[in-house]
Design a protein around this nucleic acid. Sequence first.
RNA 1: GCCCCCUUCGUCUAGUGGCCCAGGACGCCGGGUUCUCAGCCCGGAAACAGGGGUUCGACUCCCCUAGGGGGUACCA
Length: 526
Amino acid sequence: MTVRTRFAPSPTGYLHIGGVRTALFNWLYARRHGGQFVLRIDDTDQQRNVDEALEPILHGFKWLGMDWDEGPDVDGPYAPYYQSQRQERYQAAAQKLIDDGLAYYDYSTNEEVQGEREAAQAEKRPFQYSRKWMAETEEQRKAFEAEGRSFVVRLKMPREGKCEFTDLVRGELSFDWALENDHVIQRSDGSCLYHLASVVDDYEFKISHVIRAEEHLPNTPRQIFIGQSLGFTIPEYAHLPYVAEPGSKRKLSKRKLEKYLKNPDFKKLNEHGQGIAERMNLTTTADSFNPVIVDFYEQVGYLPEAILNYLVLLGWSLDDKTEDFTVEEMIANFSLERVTKAPASFDGKKLFAFQDRYIQKLPLKQKTAKMLPYLQKAGLVAEPTPCDVGPKLGQIIEACGDRLKVAGDIIAYADYFFVADEDMQYDEKGFQKRLCKAGAKENLAKFREALAATDDWSKENLDKVLHQFVEAAEIKIGEIIHALRMAITGKPVGPGMFDCLAIIGKESCLKRIDQTLAKIDASCAS
RNA sequence: GCCCCCUUCGUCUAGUGGCCCAGGACGCCGGGUUCUCAGCCCGGAAACAGGGGUUCGACUCCCCUAGGGGGUACCA
């Protein structure tokens, strides 16, 4: 049997991180078994601009490298892959169920059924529809219609026995048929509902394994009933635990951002990304730019492999120690048997740690290629790229070392390397602390002369020059180096001092020091 | 209300009756190193939800309770 799995996104305009985890498990399972991964679009007839709302989702999949074998843009033998274009099939299935006596026309009103439901609740017994308005003959239909009633189609569920099936994650499961309701499968306007559609599609697409979130577990008996009634082979089922909210066990949702931001780790992750977006002058909205949405990570400069590695461990593990997996290793090792049963909450810190590890492993050339566009978006480097930028950026990235956690971090670290001397911005707090203190100006002025007399501008030599200066002046190294950093970078923190001096170059360094000396007179209260 | 699922350090997890006074990872705390930051090195705290069984022996099996989550739509 060929393994075929599917993921069924609805065109909402964004790709949700929890959805990606579910999709990832489907994708890995298909790839692991040499099968196919299908993307089926859960749209409805009413939805407008489906293409527009779908595009960011498909883009997200592409960015992560999760390719699909059939679906939008990839035609396959079972097209169309849009549910809105498959209504006739669902209607035919509904008709067949009626013809076989496994579904029926129901002429009840909403209020009538709701009344029965409330009565059952009041008596603390399970609700079971009385089938009072069920019409199984033409005469009954005519009679109800004469009353002016309209109909829906309901499943005629069994009222005894058990529905038993094996879930690949949870094992043997058993549900009482009598507790299942006569669910509506076709609305009064003739359109069909999700459960019917889903079962019909899974069968027609020859899906072998339905791997989906836990919320569908209680729906499974009714889907099995539909499938069996239609004479379909029933797929294997695997119900995955949720990706839960940060620090909780509740299902992660798209619209509760406010609440998640109260979680310190989530907040930090978000603020870090927002900072980068600001430096790129990106206009963001909470709806489209936050850590619950995959696009956030792409914009900010995370690596897809890091995201995937983090996500695969949300509910799955190989053993007691392996944490790092390349995509190939994930594919080679993934199994449903090792999926956990309990929900896993989203942990921004851990995701960030994976990102850190992955980006540090990246060769300099690739880092440079990934980071350059960020400097351009921030307006620090022209487009097309001037030819001296590449080597310089390489030096900067090397100097920054593991301070750069995501590609977008380069902006904050590299701005003073690319900005004109006279446009350099000073961090005011740092300026006060490091340059407005006694002796700072004098030391800086003296060291300027030492630098002016230096021709060998290599960082090794600069290191030597500074140490000689410190010794001669009989001061501690900290007394000059912090002032110097402020003077030539404008910031209190950054890469190694000698790297900075070397990269900025003699001419600019002297100019910046002069500028700074002038500013000390202007800005420091005496 | 009814039905279903779940429950090991703060978080992700390992553990399928003795290898576990519970292992790894992220984070956290303390100390050291460095020109700042980021690191790096050393050390540390931190969990089997509770109660009954079964067994020579239970994190592992059974039952109950509690807690958490989900479903119960002419939503998906």
